[in-house]
Amino acid sequence: MQSEQASPTAVAGLERVFKVENTSYYYGSNMAVRGVNLEIPGNKITAFIGPSGCGKSTVLRCFNRLNDLIPSAHIKGRITYHGVDLYSKAVDPTELRRRIGMVFQKPNPFPKSIYDNVAFGARINGYQGDMDELVEKSLRSSALWDEVKDKLKESGLSLSGGQQQRLCIARAIAVEPEVILMDEPCSALDPISTLKIEDLMQQLKENYTIIIVTHNMQQASRVSDRTAFYNAEPTESGGKVGYLVEYDETQVIFSNPKETYTRDYVSGRFG
């Protein structure tokens, strides 16, 4: 059964940070996601949900062009960031990635001190201000300062999993990005650390636009303002390809979705 192509879902009345237009993504000759249309509003939390392998991470990594690192991967379509085509020749992915931070599925602090973990990004990007101040500010905004202020010289790897993930958030914040991409940031964490990160996201959204991939539907409904539901369908060649099924206000997706697939998924009937 061929579902309807999700219509370009505009974010009326809100500042539009990203606009994804008819974007497909390929790994070599394999199409991983097809025909995605959506807009990401500023200072909101947008959640990507869907069964695994449907291309949520792939789409997320398009926003900071992290997939560029995979030699055979390429994009078709258009993604704009404040109206600028992200994949145009004029865009330097290095500069782009400073503006669009990312937090990964498994905490990946650098093998450096807590202080240097936060200061590293600022140093390489030529931060001119006071470093101690920046480190403290970033650690405060990631709700980690009180736990680490007496051991800034210790290795980032000495922290617990939840603390490491907040350190990674501090590291991302320290380069003063506008957007923070989060790819299942809590999937390796215990429930209490997860709650801390979710609280933190609510504070961060004052200043940042957040896109979070999560396989946890409760999490999506708790934290996000808008939700995009992706699904995968089999292709003729025997593989599968992801597509965007529905994108709307979170509350609509979870209480009154238009698509049957979405309804089945959020009510736990498949996936």
């Binding site: 900071n64 992290l66 690192l69 290095t94 500069e95 782009l96 990635r97 400073r98 503006r99 931070g101 990312m102 990964f104 498994k106 990946n108 602090p109 650098f110 093998p111 450096k112 590293f120 990004g121 390489i124 990007n125 990674c168 590291r171 991302a172 380069v175």
Partner: peptide, 27 residues
């Protein structure tokens, strides 16, 4: 050195050289 460390470094806006000297070699 885990690939995730390199990706974490690129995601901060590091170049390849900065990633190699700043993260990969120390690791």
């Amino acid at each position: 050195v885990p690939q995730s460390l390199r990706q974490g470094c690129y995601a901060l806006g590091a170049t390849k050289r900065e990633t190699v000297t700043g993260v990969v070699l120390p690791a």
